[in-house]
Structures are given as C-alpha cells and as structure tokens.
Write a protein that binds this DNA or RNA. Structure first.
Lengths: 166, 166
DNA sequence: TTCATAATGTAATATTATAACATTCCACGT
DNA sequence: ACGTGGAATGTTATAATATTACATTATGAA
C-alpha cells in the first residue's frame, strides 16, 4: 500500500491516499472478475466511500453519503453491500467501533488485526505471524476450530502521542 | 477457577459452576473492599446474573432477569452496573456479540482474550504470554501506546466438535 | 444530623442492525 | 431481440443495543 513506504505502519499524514484507493478498487475489481462476482455500482460506491480514509466508518455515515450522492438508500442498501464486501474480504468490520474499514491486505488470506488510534481515529492493519502462531497453538491445545477472529488494539498512535498535527 | 482442574481450558459440562460463581463473587467483594468501592446490591446482582454461565449474556437479557426478580429496572440500570463492573475488571465485554461475561482472571492484570464457541456459546478466557509479547513488540515498533484490547476467537470448541451433548 | 456525593430511578431518544416483501436488473438460452 | 429466472436493490417497518438528561434516593463523612 502507498503508506508502507513511510516510516511506520500507521497511515501517515503525508501518504498518497489516492494510491490506496485506486489499488483497493483495482484489487476488488480483479478479485470479483476472477471469482465471478458482481462488483455493482452500489457495491463499488460503498467500497470507495469506506476507502475515503483509513478511519473506520459507520454504516449510517455511509448511508448519508450514498443518499447525498443522489441514490435512494435505506439501511439495507448499505448493510447488504457491507455484507458482500466483508464476505469477500474487501473490507473488515471493527467490532469495538461498530464500523467498517477497507482491507489493506487483499493479496493474501489473513485474520484481521488492527491497531486503532483513539485520537485520530486511524486504523492500521497489521500482519504478525508471531500472533498468528501463538493463537494457532492455543487453539490446537484446546481442540478449538477457529472460524473468525477479532483483534483490535486501541490506544494512541505515535503521531498523536508526539503531538503531530492532531 | 473450578473448571481449571478439568482437561481443557473450556468450561466443561461437568464442572462445578457454583464454585466459579462463589469465587467470582468473593473475589469481587474482596477487590471492592480493598479499593474502597461499593459493590451495591444491584451491582452484585448483575455480577451474579452474568455469572449464571460461561456464556456471554446481553444487557437486555440481564435487564429482563433483574425485572423478573422484582426490581424496577430500565436500560441505564443495567448499563451502569455493567460499566462499573467492567471499569474494575470484574467482567469483560465481548464486542463481537454485544454481550458480557465474568472475568475468570481476577487475580492478575491482563488483556481480555477469549475463545468463543459458536455452537454452545461458551467463552473461555485465555492467558498466553506469547500473544501478549507479540502484541507488545508490534506496539513498540509502531510507537503505539495501548489502552484497550479486544481479542475474540470464534469457532467450534472441542466438545461441540466431538458431538458432546450439544 | 447534615451535607455532599454517589447511586439509582425514570422517560425519552439515539444508534446500529435485521426482517419481510416488492420491484428492478442482468446474464443466459432461445 | 425476447422472455425467463435468480440476483440485486428498493421499501417499509421494526428489532436490538446503548445513551442522554434530569429527578430522586441512599450513603458515608464531617
């Protein structure tokens, strides 16, 4: 992703977000093409709105934006699209915020793992095999078959901690 | 806890749940006494209701039970008690279920980490320093100051997988 | 006992999500 | 191009979860 070139994993203030958006959309289109799925106008619009930033966004905020862009929309309009996008791993749900964010790791299977800044609201998706391995070992010990995972670490990101912009 | 003596970490069908409840209540009372907190009748009642089982329970289910036990209760009644109990680590919130479960690790500070069975609904609280360490390392790399954590692993527990009782 | 504060009661409402059914759209075979 | 069947969306209503604001009551400390 565009912001990976910068110092940290967190989306930095100066990163080229347009690249994030376009690669997310291209990735989604490729994925749907290859899997015979329909990335309809609505679904694409929802995906694009989710990708407005790296801040998880609520379903009703999306709904307002869809409406303001001229389309007739009610809750099911957005929830159905969110369900589709989640089902195919194009976005993730942040359970602790009841909000949704674009997937930054389209190219490989992964459990969603997020660091989320309480101050700026940005979410960074993280891959760490050490976490994966530890959880897998625990599951094995328990004989537990994992179906879904939620890992959300909230706090203050480095930029906010250091008083960057705000 | 009572079920720790059994084979797995998961609450087993045969475990002595009364011991879970009494040690949770005793622990809460000791904690509140030592910290100058008031474990009021209402708070104690909510805690006891949460401890009815190892299955996370919703706020409105608790509300119904409180009402049925004769007390006047509205949503704030239960939410305020839940907030108190969470603030002091006596219960945890399961964000992916909008539900609440008693804390099984009263005696030490810890990030809440759960395995939750989709079938029987039971939640097992787990301690694994390997997970803690991996997350701590990632946070340090990011310069991220952790405030709260949510780790919820959902799937099928060993007992359900093996067709135990159901 | 009195007072300040904490806890709870009460009413209204906000926020998030789903159910149920109607309509429209689109790929496909003809 | 035409009709068809299933997928997608529109529409209305409502469920489920949670909070705000203000009134009242209970509690412990001075």
């Amino acid at each position: 992703m565009a912001f990976d070139k910068h110092k940290g994993l967190f989306p930095t203030a100066g990163h080229d977000h347009k690249t994030c958006v376009s690669s997310a959309l291209e990735g989604a289109e490729r994925y749907c093409r290859e899997h015979g799925l329909r990335l309809t106008t609505l679904r694409r619009q929802v995906l694009e709105l989710v990708w407005t930033s790296h801040r998880p966004v609520g379903a009703y905020a999306l709904l307002e934006q869809i409406s303001s862009e001229g389309r007739k929309a009610a809750p099911p309009t957005v929830y159905r699209s969110l369900d589709f996008l989640m089902e195919h791993g194009l976005i993730h749900r942040i359970a602790s915020l009841n909000a949704y964010v674009g997937c930054s790791h389209l190219t490989h299977n992964h459990a969603p793992r997020f660091f989320i800044c309480d101050q700026c609201g940005e979410a960074a998706e993280l891959d760490d095999p050490a976490i994966d391995d530890a959880i897998a070992r625990d599951a094995e010990k328990l004989g537990f078959r994992i179906e879904r995972q939620t890992l959300e670490i909230s706090g203050i990101c480095a930029q906010c901690e250091n008083g960057a912009i705000a």
